[in-house]
Design a protein around this nucleic acid. Structure first.
Lengths: 343, 343
DNA sequence: CTGTTAGCGCCTTCAG
DNA sequence: CTGAAGGCGCTAACAG
């Protein structure tokens, strides 16, 4: 019992394929008798038009591709959630691919999807700016290939497309300022994303806050880390070397782990060392003490991306004229930082 | 500059489409001169075959659809991760849809995908067994429609297909037994999934453990909760009414929240009340005290589903003969339970 | 009212 | 070695 096609139905009633097609589309061109017979038959046999064939004719798939580095990161999950939400509302499906921090996989996915499988793409690239040059070509092919692209969070300046980014400079600034305002004087940064632009922007914000308060910047306080690094070892190094009283960690899991290590070493959080992290997920909220975090509003970012992309897809009109939307962050103050002094 | 097609290339060289096609497939039927000219041209202009058209011809899309209730649940994320991993290894993409606990959305997604968009489906249904009857029809259409289906975790007995499930009975049993063995005598269950079969299986395991130890079962100790419920209120009710010294919560976030509330009310965990939860995610590990959890091995389940499904897809041979694989759980013992007495 | 034709982009015989 | 023809399943003019 292979899949039922228009042709099969046509044969069954000894009519032409187009008659069946029209009946199923409830065309007024077909007599009510035949029409209802055909429709009844189709329903009874669970006829479903073949999407692939329809796509070919309509030159549209009503699906959008999403490529994110990592699905175990709460921020990306939230973005995905936001995308899914509006995509669905607007009649699109999403096909989501995880690049898993691998440039190769990102490239593969990119050209898999850009060959007609989707009507548009949403991408947060894995490429650090160093290794980008070859990779940009890859992405550009996609864009040239006339398929709309929206990048978010980890975007590439060299690519011309719509973008939705976080105000990471301001985020770094706000977080640092808060730490400073609550009495910290020696703030270390632990950055698992040091090779990315957003990582550097946050550090820039940090510097700015420092200098406004008259503190000198000491680059020994910035520690890039890799996934394979032993955080405990690295932290002990920092802690012994400097007189740290504040820590800013650039992703959620690192923040949580760092706090654990610090407390295990006998420091009180926030009195000895105050902590602020990035990405306000569930971990931060339920950990003890609850962590003060920078929220990037992932779901909102996802929604924005999806809306922008679908607008692009549906308004073939718009000639270029790309927009970059920047989304402000919020500081969610909890217990890992001291209270702001009363005024 | 619209998308480059075979036809365009053919026109450019004044040859036929099939010549171009063959060249691009490196057929020996084409002279090396022509072939290399054509291939060079195609490369230079970023020719990419239209997937949709290829799919139509090959009757295969090399993608599999995944429908899960909720992406904010760590278990499902892990499953997704596992699926993605093997799908990728085996040359498939995944198109993932979130049913968001809505039966309607699940049904929509189901027939969206089952109409040729994917070669196979992996599904964890949202349907509780009560409301299932109409819904089963929907799912059956899909199956009848000749597209392979693998269900996992929340499966439906009425559907005949491959399944990958968790040994929830045994999980409930093991968790309860552990609590009993470490001295609990009054164990309450908080179940956000009480209408599902897996929820009931866990409770059955609980009963079994109870009776083996000679404890009577008291169904007042089982509390079903809904997402909208006020957990604090419900818990205070349970805590006041009964002399609880152990709690089993059937998902991760509920476990974490319950522990928070319990501790806020002055109980010591685990000495006054011991806690075991289901789904071993990041939260459980980093919360204080770290939670003892039942791990369902989500990633492994995902891998198993994907392998099974792809085997099905590629062996058109196998005639039916569905398998149900049951995956054992592990108890990850941490600090929210007391230690097992030495023997 | 119904059927024929043409075509979406690609692939696969089968002739030339 | 190259091209023409037919078809995947469906839609959309255009005839009858």
């Amino acid at each position: 019992m292979t899949k039922l096609t228009l042709k099969d139905i046509a044969k069954h009633f000894s009519v032409s394929v187009s008659t069946v097609s029209k009946s199923l589309h409830d065309s007024h061109e077909i007599s009510d008798g035949l029409k209802s017979k055909i429709r009844k038959y189709a329903k009874a046999n669970h006829y479903k038009p073949n999407k692939i064939a329809q796509n070919l004719v309509n030159r549209s798939t009503k699906t959008i591709g999403v490529i994110i580095p990592n699905i175990l990161n709460y921020f990306f999950v939230q973005v995905l959630y936001g995308i899914e939400k509006v995509a669905n509302e607007r009649g699109y499906s999403i096909i989501s691919c995880i690049s898993d921090h691998s440039l190769k996989k990102e490239a593969m996915t990119l050209d898999l999807l850009s060959s007609g499988a989707v009507d548009g793409l949403i991408l947060s690239t894995v490429a650090s700016e160093m290794q980008t040059n070859k990779h940009i070509g890859k992405i550009l092919e996609t864009v040239d290939n006339q398929i709309p692209l929206v990048m978010f969070d980890r975007v590439l300046d060299a690519i011309e497309c719509d973008k939705v980014i976080v105000d990471d400079f301001q985020a770094g600034y706000k977080a640092t300022k808060y730490l400073l305002d609550t009495g910290c004087t020696n703030i270390a940064i632990i950055s698992p994303i040091h090779s990315t632009k957003i990582g550097r922007l946050r550090v820039d914000g940090y510097k700015q806050a420092l200098s406004e308060k008259g503190f000198a910047f000491d680059d020994k306080l910035i520690t890039p880390i890799e996934p394979k690094d032993d955080l405990e070892f690295i932290l002990s190094f920092i802690l012994n070397d400097k007189n740290i009283d504040g820590i800013m960690a650039l992703d959620e899991i690192t923040t949580v782990k760092a706090m654990g290590i610090i407390m295990a070493r006998g420091y009180h959080v926030p009195n000895d060392i105050a902590i602020i992290g990035f990405t306000n997920g569930r971990l931060s909220k339920y950990v003890t003490p609850a962590l003060t975090m920078v929220s990037q509003h992932g779901s909102y970012i996802g929604e924005t991306c999806a809306n922008r992309l679908i607008d692009r897809i549906e308004n073939i009109s718009s000639p270029g004229n790309f927009e970059t939307k920047v989304v402000k962050t919020s500081l969610i103050v909890r217990e890992s930082t001291r209270k702001l002094p009363m005024v």
